[in-house]
Nucleic acid binder design. Structure first.
Length: 755
DNA sequence: AGCACGCCGACT
DNA sequence: GTCGGCGTGCTC
């Protein structure tokens, strides 16, 4: 026994690897031992027939794997943890909460460059200085070498050294510098980029604006708890100056020597917003958005950990940016759907941010004019502090909102006669009009008048959208495209015509109807190209009478001071959504779009076309505003035990073979059901199962989609049930594993929509 | 997810 | 004869 005991290893390394398998893998320590190994370093390990780079999670004294099966770590890539302790801890929680592989979670959270095993780059810059700082004059420079003498004088005035770019801008060329170096007069050194510790601490470029009493109160409330964790729901109507509140909170954070992380929706970071941050702050800012390449992303990450930036502004994925000195987190437009990732790791950046704030014991501000029902509920139950900004800055007045009955009305390109009249009125006063429709293209359907045939996508359960610019049929769900047929695909008669209206058709109609008023269309098609959107916006800002037609894009964050009339053409689609969040979204959309009207000195008017002007919930929104509306919806949700009064988990399955998905979920449902019964987790107050149901669009991109919804009034049993279900899919009966391997399945915790 | 292994169809 | 199709199994 003694002999064998001696050869037993005393330590094992738990490694997270980039594989979808939801577990960590144990390895034997490298020959060099474990002395310098810390969680968060990268290790190269053999994995089956290949080599992978993983992250060391823990060093343990035990393993469940037979010694004979254990392999040895091949290479240690880092001396210092490349993933800071708090981020590692965060990722462990995220992987656990979303039931995802830790290795792949770390992959989502860190820049690709790190995962490839690239060494950590020291961020340095080149500094030139005099070799003999005490010399009164250069000893080796000829008297006629004027440039070199000038350079020497310059360096003499800056004995600490000057950076190469700076020298260039002062007119010193590389040639001059290398001449000085050759003569031993100057030398260049590499220094690490300065951190904010060593930087001269002027924080502001320009003075902050004066806050109105309401803003000042909000800032003061938040600063009072600035030293500890607290979630603030900052509900501020459009134009109430949320951004200025953010800026002043950030200013105080920077003054305290800490960093601020600011999350913004995917298309929320306009050049204007960024400009405003850069104008205000003298402190370096890192911007993290989808347009960055790997290397830029990596540099931004590195600057944040090294405390070389004071502010990090980014979209969803920026929530994983490590901070050297966390001080404040801001989530702007917290209700925005883009905070929820809709594939692979289906995380909510807002929820992860709240976890981070708790972890770092710092305040977090969720800002929105139209907060999500979840957040409103959390505010009502005092888990969040609810703060309000209800005054519009400047002279701007709140717009009037009217529900326009279009029942029985003849619509032209979706516009009722009454709306057309209104448009004329506003244009005649020299003002601008904004028309909102959530449908791009010319028309959503091509219909045969003879037989009723409709042009459908061959790969999706969806109609093809007609586009005119350029003319083609397009599937908005899978990108399938074809030319516009002349004859019906069924009866071959030439009586095809477009039904319904999208942005292009409305644009056409308005052009003919309101000539010569310019029509500016803003949707994904019209804004292709980097500067196109900016060009369109600058046209609008000229302030001449014009009609803007656009999709969602128009609802977000832009100022249009000359717009006095805003129309929503198809509010009804939100009233009858299959998704229980349809009404919430409609309310947010209406409020956000209405916020575009009358932000200048002129009063705004909002027209909502609907077939249901009597709808109590719409009326509540219009007459009493978003917050009362939200409370009405919350009461409704409570009755139906829907979120936030229950928690949801969704099993999604995609399969090529229509019935396989349903079969898998049926079996899974049966197993979960037994499990719940056995553990007394069922019953009306326990975990309930709904499905399998086909997804609202059953076929998409040639994949059939099925789902099984699991719901529970408390989180714990929901997660227990999901953990159990995943065990069945990954390691249950042979038949189950086999079926599960044939399809693509995934889990969505806190799903945002059932699409 | 990868990647190897393995067992059946049309090809130089 | 063999190249390669993707079903099946495994990864510490």
């Amino acid at each position: 026994m003694g002999n064998y005991a001696k050869s037993e290893p005393t330590h094992y390394l738990q490694v997270a690897l980039p594989t979808p398998l939801r577990r960590v893998f144990d390895y034997l320590p490298p020959k060099s031992g474990i002395d310098f190994l810390r969680p968060g370093i990268r290790l190269k390990v053999p994995f089956g027939p290949r080599k992978l780079i993983g992250i060391l999670i823990a060093i343990t004294a035990k393993t469940d794997i037979p010694l004979a099966n254990l392999k040895r770590v091949e290479q240690v890539l880092d001396e210092q943890p490349i993933i800071p302790k708090d981020i590692l801890e965060l990722c462990r929680w995220v992987a656990h909460y979303y039931h995802y592989s830790l290795g792949e979670t770390l992959g989502t959270a860190t820049p690709t460059a790190l995962r490839q095993g690239r060494p950590v780059a020291q961020q340095t810059r080149k500094l030139w200085r005099l070799t003999y700082p005490n010399a009164e004059a250069p000893s080796h420079i000829a008297r006629n070498a004027k440039l070199q003498l000038a350079a020497w004088q310059l360096l003499k005035q800056h004995l600490k050294g000057l950076h190469e770019p700076m020298l260039k801008s002062l007119g010193v060329s590389n040639q001059t510098l290398s001449a000085l170096e050759k003569k031993g007069e100057a030398e260049c050194i590499y220094e690490n980029l300065p951190t904010l510790h060593t930087m001269p601490q002027s924080i502001l470029h320009e003075a902050p604006l004066t806050l109105n009493p309401e803003q000042a109160h909000v800032v003061q409330q938040i600063l009072q708890t600035a030293q500890q964790f607290q979630v603030f729901l900052l509900q501020g109507i459009t134009g109430s100056g949320k951004t200025e509140v953010y800026l002043q909170l950030i200013e105080q954070t920077l003054k305290a020597g800490r960093q601020a992380l600011v999350l913004i929706p995917e298309i929320g970071l306009t050049p204007q917003t960024l400009h405003r941050f850069e104008q205000r702050f003298a402190v370096p800012i890192a911007v993290i958005h989808s347009g960055l390449n790997d290397n830029e992303r990596y540099l931004a990450w590195q600057k944040a950990v090294d405390y070389r930036v004071g502010i990090i502004i980014g979209t969803r994925s920026a929530v994983f940016t490590p901070l050297a000195k966390p001080g404040l987190i801001i989530i702007d437009e917290e209700h925005d759907a883009s905070y929820k990732q809709q594939d692979s790791l289906r995380y909510s950046a807002r929820d992860i941010a709240i976890y981070r704030a708790r972890q770092a014991n710092i305040p977090i501000v969720l800002g929105s004019a139209t907060p999500s029902l979840e957040s409103v509920h959390n505010a009502q139950t005092h888990r969040y502090r609810h703060l309000h900004l209800s005054q519009r800055a400047g002279q701007a007045k709140p717009p009037s909102i009217e529900l326009l009955n279009i029942r029985g009305e003849t619509l032209q390109a979706g516009l009722s006669p009454a709306l057309q009249q209104k448009i004329t009125q506003h244009l005649e006063k020299g003002q601008q009009v904004l028309i909102f429709i959530n449908r791009r293209g010319y028309a959503p359907t091509l219909l045969c008048h003879e037989c009723g045939w409709v042009a459908d996508c061959p790969d999706c359960d969806a109609h093809l959208t007609i586009h005119r610019q350029p003319p083609h049929l397009h599937c908005h769900h899978c990108d399938y495209q074809q030319s516009i047929p002349v004859r019906c695909g069924h009866c071959n008669t030439a009586s095809l015509f477009p039904v319904g209206a999208g942005t292009e058709r409305i644009e056409d109609f308005l052009l003919s109807q309101f000539d010569p008023i310019p029509i500016i269309r803003i949707d994904r098609d019209s804004t292709r190209g980097k500067t196109r959107l900016q060009e369109l916006f600058s046209d609008i800002h000229q302030g001449k009478p014009a009609i803007l037609v656009g999709t969602q894009m128009l609802a977000k964050g832009h100022h249009f001071p000359k717009v006095t009339l805003v129309a929503i053409l198809d509010a009804d689609s939100g009233l009858f959504s299959t998704d229980f969040r349809g009404l919430e979204r409609l309310g947010q959309l209406v409020t956000q779009v209405a916020g575009r009207a009358g932000r200048g000195k002129l009063a705004g008017e909002v027209i909502i076309q609907t077939h249901h002007p009597e709808s109590p919930v719409l009326n509540r929104l219009v007459t009493e505003g978003y917050e009362v509306f939200a409370k009405t919806l919350l009461a409704e949700r409570e009755k139906l035990s829907l979120p936030p009064y229950s928690y949801l988990g969704l099993f999604r399955v995609e399969c090529k073979n229509q019935e396989e998905g349903e079969r898998l979920l049926l079996q899974l449902r049966e197993l979960i059901s037994q499990f719940l019964q056995y553990n007394n987790l069922n019953g009306p107050l326990g975990v309930t199962l709904l499905g399998p149901l086909p997804a609202p669009m059953e076929k998409r991109q040639s994949w059939y989609r099925w789902q099984l919804l699991i719901s529970s009034p408390s989180r714990q049993p929901l997660h227990t049930a999901i953990t159990f279900a995943i065990h069945q899919l990954e390691g249950g009966t042979q038949a189950m594993i086999k079926l599960a391997r044939k399809v693509r399945w995934s889990v969505d915790i806190d799903p945002q929509d059932m699409m």
